[in-house]
Design a protein around this nucleic acid. Structure first.
Lengths: 149, 149
DNA sequence: GTAACTGCAAAATATTTGCATCCTT
DNA sequence: AAGGATGCAAATATTTTGCAGTTAC
């Protein structure tokens, strides 16, 4: 029963994530984190509402996502369309060792967004006078899944 | 009278841009393009409304920006906050030779966004299975102007 | 003159806020 | 029991659409 097992693993991870961040363990938080774990990619606010069905209020989704961003549980992926997409870093689970130096990939076919945790952000050299603090890379193309079909 | 001269240069460029893209030369289009030329950086929808004063309708701004994006006169810069920012590529003026392979820079102090036309997008190597079509790089830090102060 | 552009009104969406109630610890 | 989280209602903000009048060519 692999399905069951996965769920259990997710349950544990969800609880750990919430507890570690001093957040009370509530239904909507658990549900939303599970959605991220199942998705294995990025979710926009709208995706979450859809996937969650009629389960909880739109306002709760806004507030929960904001809380997660504040705590560093999820991060925002910059996109060119209006939609803010959020993703749970795969390496978030490695206790406090927060490094989001990975790049993002948007599949133009299935429209999913992935964190490519294994691809390190390249070095960028700026002109004189600019002080660089952070580099964000978003790539676009066809993802593994879509290419395999 | 350098101010006058700049305006004239802008005027010419604005007219050329519009004509080249088969767009009729209207007040709002000229005004908005001038704003981009004066700004020398990115503008969000809201910025344009502010800078333009009470000059024209909000709807016109939406429609004009959309038209410019469709024609490739301006491009969208992906950001992590909700705001869509648009920028006129410096090299747009080199007739039809459209290459947007530059990176973007957001100043966390003055909150301006610039196209760094001289910085070429770095190579990115993706895992097997992914087909890459486009790479977008947004850097963040303190810009030349703010550092010089 | 005609097609395209603009402005106004209004609809549709998206986001935020306040507050009473419920749930977690 | 107490503080925080949720859900509902409503206020704001943002974006889209339709249409009539105006303008560019």
């Amino acid at each position: 029963m692999p399905e069951k097992e996965t769920t259990t693993v997710h349950d544990e991870r969800v609880n750990r994530l919430l507890r570690r961040n001093n957040l009370s363990i509530t239904g909507s938080r658990k549900k939303i984190l599970h959605l991220f774990l199942e998705q294995n990619g990025a979710l926009a606010h709208g995706d979450i509402e859809k996937k969650a069905g009629e389960k909880f209020d739109r306002v709760t989704v806004y507030r929960t996502l904001q809380t997660f961003v504040d705590k560093g549980i999820i991060h925002i992926i910059p996109t060119a369309d209006n939609s803010i997409r959020y993703a749970l870093c795969k390496d978030d689970c490695t206790e406090g060792h927060h490094h989001d130096h990975h790049i993002h990939f948007v599949c133009t076919q299935c429209n999913n967004t992935y964190c490519l945790d294994d691809v390190v952000t390249p070095e960028v050299k700026l002109p004189n006078g600019y002080t660089i603090a952070h580099v964000e890379v978003v790539t676009e193309g066809i993802c593994k899944n879509c290419n395999d079909k």
